[in-house]
Design a binder for these strands. Structure first.
Lengths: 107, 107
DNA sequence: ACAACGTATAAGTAACTGCTTATATATTGA
DNA sequence: TCAATATATAAGCAGTTACTTATACGTTGT
C-alpha cells in the first residue's frame, strides 16, 4: 500500500535517485557518480525502489540499466485523492477524472 | 518539503491517526482508545503530524482536540504532479488545473 | 486547597535503517 | 583463459525511530 511508497520516498538519497531515474535510464555506476554514497548503497536503494514498483531493471550483460516507474506512484495518488474533498472547490473535478482511469497493470 | 511529509506518513500508526483525524476531531485520550500504543506514543505522533502541517491542535482547558489538515498534503500533491506527464493521456488535464490553484496560506 | 484528570516531556531501550568495507557472482575484452 | 569490470550480497556499525515507563505540568470539580 501507499505506506511503503512513502517510506521509500521518505529518504532524501532515494528520492533523488528516483527523480533522476524518471528523466532517463542510468546504470548503477553512472548513478554512483552523482551521489556521495558508495556503489553498494546505490544498489540497495535501487533494490528498495524496485521492490515497491518505483523502478525497473533492464539487464544487459554486466550492466544493469535502471529507469523510474512514475506509474508506481499511482497508489499514492489514489490515496491522496480521498483528501481532495477537503480542498478548495476547483480541485474537486480532479477526483472524477482519476476514478475513470484504469488501474495499473504490469510491474 | 514533501520528503518530510512522506517520512511522517511512512509510519503505519501515524498514517492511521492522520486518517482518523481527517474524519473528525479527537482528543488525545479518545485517540488512544483506538490504538495499541500508549498515550505518550500518541502524543508523540501528534507532535510529528503537527510539526509538518498535517494536524492542528485546539486547546480547551485540559483537553487537546486534534484535527487533520489535509491541505498539508498539498506539497506532496504538487510534487506528484510533476510525474503525471508520464501517465496515460487523460490525466494530463489535471496538471493545468493544479497550476491555477493558489498556494496554501495559514498553518 | 487538593485530588483526579488530560496531556506533554524525559529518559531509556530495542528494532530498524542507511551506510560502510569486504567479498561473491557474472560478464567482457585482451 | 584470465584479469578487469559491473553489480549484488554479506556483515557490521552508528544514528534514528517508535515505543515504553515515570514524571511533570496545567486544569477542573469537590
Amino acid at each position: 500500500m501507499q505506506m511503503e511508497l512513502m517510506k521509500a520516498l521518505g529518504d532524501g538519497t532515494r528520492l533523488a535517485i528516483f527523480e533522476r531515474l524518471c528523466k532517463r535510464e542510468y546504470t548503477v555506476s553512472e548513478l554512483t557518480l552523482h551521489f556521495d554514497v558508495s556503489q553498494p548503497a546505490i544498489s540497495q536503494h535501487l533494490g528498495v525502489l524496485k521492490r515497491c514498483g518505483l523502478a525497473r531493471e533492464r539487464r544487459a550483460g554486466r550492466f544493469a540499466h535502471y529507469r523510474g516507474r512514475p506509474e508506481g506512484l499511482r497508489p499514492m495518488m489514489q490515496w491522496l485523492d480521498h483528501y481532495r474533498q477537503f480542498w478548495p472547490e476547483k480541485i474537486n473535478a480532479l477526483s472524477a477524472m482519476l476514478k475513470e482511469m484504469p488501474d495499473e497493470k504490469g510491474k
